[in-house]
């Protein structure tokens, strides 16, 4: 009797082992990824990101709006400052960000070299640095987000050349010397011009991205140059100034004007016909990308060193 009982017990034990093994198998097989679902989904405390603009021109206002939109979307506390084109003020604002202990700074430098030291201090304080539109001469920058200004300059140059029939005299109004935007746009424009042997750049003057300066500088050029077929300015402000000067001089209809940035005034000018074309940057997109990439970086993702933002030719 004992033997029989024990053989039943043994049988049951073996059966149990088999069942456990089978169940174990099917559990491991049927519950995939239970362990690798991401745990801490959202950080409870919102990230704080400082957005430092060089001035409050429409371009940067739009950029800031895009950044704000992304910040709202990503639950980021965005602190916005503009420096009014004052290097010292921008440095103060950087210090303010350091003092506040923000997680990241998204900056468009007033001057690429002048803020480098402060930016490095901020990076040393553990703040992630992102540059937008204009670069900073430092290797602490996580990523530089900007339009491909060289491509934009070339695009503008090609359009201007085509419009004036690939021959004639053109003028280039340059932005603030030392800014990457001015350098790259000028380089792209000149690359394009070099392919048109019948086009001569009769004048190349700095107008510091400023409408009044553009007007003043171009008025002088008008006075100097009897024949001008086209003008390319490194930004819309300067081209609008140039248009104003040409209108004053009564030569606006003889000249093809090509700007850069597609700000609202420029778009209005396109629609009135005084401006022929402009290169549309995506300031809002730059702001968004600045904030989005800062958040991604802070969440541990790898961000490329350079993020190019597409440009588009906007015509009349």
């Amino acid at each position: 009797m004992f033997g029989k009982k024990s053989s039943i017990v043994l049988g049951f034990i073996l059966l149990l082992i088999v069942l456990v093994a089978l169940v174990g198998c099917s559990i491991t097989a049927s519950n995939p990824g239970e362990s690798d679902t991401p745990s801490g989904a959202e950080t409870a405390v919102p990230l704080r990101i400082g957005l430092l603009a060089p001035e409050n021109s429409p371009f940067f206002v739009t950029l800031q709006e895009g950044a704000q939109e992304a910040a709202n979307r990503l639950n980021v506390n965005l602190i916005v400052r503009d420096a009014g084109n004052d290097i010292a003020k921008q440095n103060e604002q950087i210090q303010e960000m350091i003092d506040m202990g923000v997680n990241a700074i998204v900056i468009t430098a007033v001057d690429s070299t002048a803020v480098a030291e402060k930016i490095e201090a901020a990076a040393a304080a553990g703040i992630a640095i992102f540059t937008v539109d204009r670069s900073v001469d430092s290797n602490v920058v996580v990523s530089h987000i900007a339009s491909d200004n060289t491509a934009g300059g070339k695009m503008a140059g090609d359009y201007l050349a085509e419009t004036i029939g690939k021959q004639g005299s053109v003028v280039e109004l340059e932005g603030i010397a030392g800014t990457s935007a001015a350098q790259d746009r000028g380089a792209g424009f000149n690359q394009a011009m070099a392919t048109y042997p019948n086009i001569t750049i009769v004048a190349k003057e700095v107008a510091n991205f400023n409408r009044e300066e553009g007007q003043t500088v171009f008025a002088q050029i008008l006075a100097d140059q009897p024949t001008i077929n086209g003008v390319f300015a490194h930004n819309d402000e300067m081209i609008l100034g140039a248009i104003a000067a040409a209108e004053e001089a009564g030569r606006a209809n003889d000249i093809i004007f090509v700007g850069f940035d597609a700000v609202d005034d420029a778009v209005a000018a396109l629609e009135t016909g005084s401006l022929t074309a402009t290169i549309a940057q995506q300031p809002a997109e730059m702001g968004r990308l600045g904030v989005e990439n800062a958040v991604k970086y802070l969440q541990g993702e790898t961000i490329p060193d350079n993020i190019a933002v597409d440009l588009a030719l906007i015509t009349r």
């Binding site: 778009v267 396109l270 549309a280």
Partner: peptide, 21 residues
């Protein structure tokens, strides 16, 4: 409204941004 330039800007900025996202 005939604001073709504005339309282009919207297409190349806002709509591009949307497309990217």
């Amino acid at each position: 409204q005939g604001s073709w330039s504005r339309a282009q800007v919207i297409r190349h900025t806002e709509m591009s941004s949307l497309q990217r996202r």
